[in-house]
């Protein structure tokens, strides 16, 4: 499934490089990734491969504007415009997060006192759904992800890891944004719920969403990937 060559990718990394400078450890420099170039088109699910510590997660975070990027450009398509996340002012990045990029991490950052269904519905409203639509879709997603209905109105802070993760997935998937970043969303799920997530991801793909993800489980990876990119190739090249 090769996209037509003239189509603008939903996300494009161009020669992206990132390192951390650890000032608390005498300014030690920790290279993460270098020369990373890759594109994700609508309807594609690109999976990042490679050993842990290779910088897969950092790439996702840079695309979301959560991590800074040292060199290169990260272009996100917003309608007819292409925005370089690396250079965009904070407000522009926030606008992209509202209308273009969804990001599902491994962990739910819980908000005190807000119930699970409301956590999910709020994400839907932020993503442009009407309050009614957001509420309905939140219930639908939580049901599909097998979260017991008695938990829906409780704050997720007290949930198990797997339950929190399902709330988090529902939260990340509720809005219809054209670009979806997935950072090990199935990490703490059982087989039944992994299968549900695979179905949800495929549905997004079929609807034309561009997906870029990291999946630890090989069965999930194989089920959703249209292409696997090995991040191990994006390393700093030292002079021989």
């Amino acid at each position: 499934m090769t996209p037509p060559p003239d189509a603008t990718p939903a996300l494009e990394f161009r020669e992206v490089a990132k390192s951390f400078t650890l000032h608390l450890r005498g300014g030690a420099r920790l290279p993460v990734i270098a020369g990373a170039s890759l594109s994700v088109h609508p309807g594609e699910c690109v999976v990042l491969g490679g050993p842990s510590g290779a910088g897969k997660s950092s790439l996702l975070k840079m695309a979301y504007g959560n991590y800074r990027c040292e060199r290169g450009a990260i272009l996100v398509r917003d309608g007819a415009e292409r925005v370089d996340v690396v250079r965009a002012p904070p407000r522009r990045v926030l606008a992209l997060r509202r209308s273009v990029i969804s990001y599902v991490s491994q962990f739910l950052r819980v908000i005190p006192r807000v119930g699970a269904r409301e956590v999910v519905a709020a994400a839907g409203r932020e993503g442009g759904l009407t309050p009614d639509r957001a509420a309905a879709r939140a219930a639908e997603l939580l049901a599909r992800l097998n979260l017991p209905e008695r938990l829906w109105d409780l704050p997720p802070a007290t949930f198990s890891g797997g339950e929190q993760q399902r709330v988090n997935i529902a939260r990340g998937l509720i809005a219809d944004r054209p670009l979806l970043l997935l950072d090990e969303p199935t990490a703490s799920l059982d087989a039944r719920n992994r299968a549900v997530v695979v179905e949800l991801i495929r549905a997004k793909q079929a609807a034309g969403t561009a997906l870029l993800g990291i999946f630890h489980d090989s069965d999930v990876r194989e089920a959703v990937a249209t292409r696997v990119v090995d991040v191990a190739g994006f390393r700093e090249r030292h002079a021989a």
């Binding site: 951390f20 000032h23 608390l24 975070k61 504007g65 959560n66 991590y67 800074r68």
Partner: peptide, 17 residues
């Protein structure tokens, strides 16, 4: 900068501290 960016990937020595 963006709050989560500054807190998750702080650049300045003092912010890292």
């Amino acid at each position: 900068g963006l709050t989560d960016q500054v807190l998750d990937d702080p650049a300045e020595p003092y912010t890292q501290l």
